[in-house]
Lab assay of single mutants.
Amino acid sequence: DETGKELVLVLYDYQEKSPREVTIKKGDILTLLNSTNKDWWKIEVNDRQGFVPAAYLKKLD
């Protein structure tokens, strides 16, 4: 059920640097789980959840 889920576009590649982070690729469109922290957003990638720098993402309307 995708209702109410926010999507984000990945602006730059990011390689995870800790187990709490996930790797993302430029151009991916992913589900945003939590954006309350202005610097690190929690997203879902391939059934994995983790954090990436918010500056690497853009919210889609």
Results as ranks from 00 to 15, higher is better:
G27A: 03
N46Y: 14
E21W: 04
L32C: 09
E16Y: 05
I24H: 01
N37Y: 08
K17T: 11
A55Y: 10
T3P: 12
L7N: 05
K26E: 07
D13W: 03
W41H: 02
N46W: 09
T31Y: 11
V52C: 05
D28W: 15
L32A: 03
I29E: 03
D28T: 13
P19D: 12
N34T: 07
K42A: 08
L11P: 00
Y14G: 00
V10D: 00
G27C: 08
I24Q: 00
L11W: 03
T3D: 11
G50S: 03
Q49C: 09
A54C: 07
T36D: 15
S35G: 10
S18N: 11
Y12N: 09
A55C: 14
I43F: 00
N34K: 07
D28M: 15
T3I: 13
L33D: 01
V8K: 01
L57P: 00
D13V: 02
P53S: 02
D61C: 13
F51S: 03
R20S: 11
W41A: 02
D47L: 09
R48I: 07
L33Y: 04
L11H: 02
P53E: 01
K26P: 03
I29W: 04
E6Q: 15
P53F: 03
Y56Q: 03
T36I: 08
E44T: 07
T3W: 12
K38S: 12
V10N: 00
K58E: 09
S18V: 05
G4W: 13
Y14D: 01
Y56C: 10
A54G: 04
E44M: 11
E44H: 07
L57W: 01
P19M: 09
I24W: 01
A54S: 13
K38F: 08
K17S: 09
L32I: 05
I43V: 15
R20F: 13
D13H: 06
G27F: 05
L7P: 04
I24P: 00
G27L: 02
G4N: 12
D39A: 12
S35I: 05
L11G: 01
E21F: 04
Y12K: 15
W40I: 03
F51E: 04
Y14R: 06
I24C: 08
S18I: 05
E44L: 11
E16F: 08
K58Q: 11
N46K: 12
N37Q: 08
